[in-house]
Simulated scan of single mutants.
Amino acid sequence: MSFINFNGKVKKMNHKPKGVTELVFEVPTKELGNRIQNLAEMIDKDVKVEIESDIVRYNVQINANTERPIVNYEVDQSGVVYIAKPESEQLEAELGLPEEKPKIEEKPMEIEREVVDRFIVEGMAPEQEGFPENMSEIAKRRIEGESYRKLATELEMSSGTIVDLINDYRAAVAPLAETWWEWKEDQANEAVPMRKDEEAADVDLDSSQSVKDDSDGNDQKEEEDGAA
């Protein structure tokens, strides 16, 4: 029995007679490498297929008037994401104004699944209402390679249900993961060492100072010799 996993694109889905659906994948040859022969041996054979998108799609509620998200997130120094109180609410509370009731719309968003999965695996994803208490751990186990079947058996639910549960959880934490990822990138950029041209400028400055110090020392020595 052969096993192959690869990254590719679903190009077509054709509904054929007799209740058959034909799927067409496009895979870079270098992605398959020397496994291409294994794939060729599977032609016209029964196979088990699991397809998982590299993109997580989710919806964000926005204020239709300002086109800004209703819920905003911030990250503390330890990387924990939390809900930030909107400025409008703070102003209304300070001035004693009635709470604004904006018109809310749903805006579709996308994020790379790898970002969301890293957010979960690193233990930064919080539990979400409507999911099992240990949902973050369940999702982490799947991301790290545990099969849907094993998880479904343990949780006493169907494989299809656990697939939907994990996908829904990814979508639920996706906006938090996006904020967390932006914070991580900012942290990495701040830690980047000086560019070579900046280092060269510092070296030139140090050299100039050294020459000046030597010159001052020589001038002082000449004055002392003259006085002697």
Rank of each mutant, 00 (worst) to 15 (best):
I62L: 10
E112K: 15
V81Q: 02
N63L: 06
A40Q: 10
E100C: 04
A40H: 11
E100D: 10
E52M: 10
M135G: 05
D54S: 09
I51M: 08
V56W: 00
V47Y: 01
K18V: 09
L39D: 00
Q90I: 15
P28S: 14
A64L: 11
I43L: 14
I43R: 11
R57N: 05
E67A: 15
E100S: 13
L97G: 08
L91C: 09
N38Q: 13
V81G: 07
I55W: 02
H15L: 13
P102D: 02
F119A: 13
E87W: 04
N63S: 12
V27S: 03
G19Y: 00
M135N: 01
E127L: 12
K48C: 13
V27D: 00
D76W: 00
A93N: 04
E50M: 10
N14R: 12
E22C: 12
E31Q: 14
E92R: 09
P126W: 02
D44I: 11
K103G: 14
M135A: 06
Y82T: 10
N34A: 14
N134Y: 02
E74L: 10
L91D: 00
P28I: 14
I120N: 02
T66S: 15
Q61T: 05
E26S: 09
Q90D: 05
E127P: 10
D46Y: 04
N14E: 03
E127I: 11
E74S: 10
S88A: 08
D117C: 12
L32I: 05
L97Q: 02
V60G: 06
F119M: 13
R57M: 07
P108Q: 03
S136V: 04
L32W: 01
R113F: 01
G33Y: 00
L91N: 03
D46H: 09
V20L: 07
R118S: 13
K30T: 10
I138H: 00
S88L: 11
G33T: 03
P108W: 01
V75N: 02
I138P: 00
N38M: 07
Q77P: 03
G79V: 04
Q37D: 05
E112R: 12
L91K: 11
V56F: 02
E31L: 12
L97R: 07
R35A: 09
E92L: 07
V49C: 06
M135R: 01
D46M: 08
K16L: 14
E133D: 05
N14M: 12
E67Y: 14
E127G: 15
G79C: 07
N63Q: 13
S88M: 14
N14V: 15
G33F: 04
D76I: 14
P86A: 12
I111K: 06
V60Q: 14
A40K: 15
R118A: 15
I138M: 03
D117E: 04
K16M: 15
V115E: 01
D46A: 15
A64W: 00
D54N: 13
R141C: 14
G96Y: 00
N72P: 08
P17I: 02
V81L: 08
R35G: 09
V49D: 00
R68E: 12
E114V: 14
M13D: 00
P17R: 03
E114C: 05
F131E: 00
K48H: 07
D117H: 06
M109K: 14
G33M: 04
K48A: 13
P98L: 04
R113G: 08
E94Y: 07
I36A: 13
N34G: 05
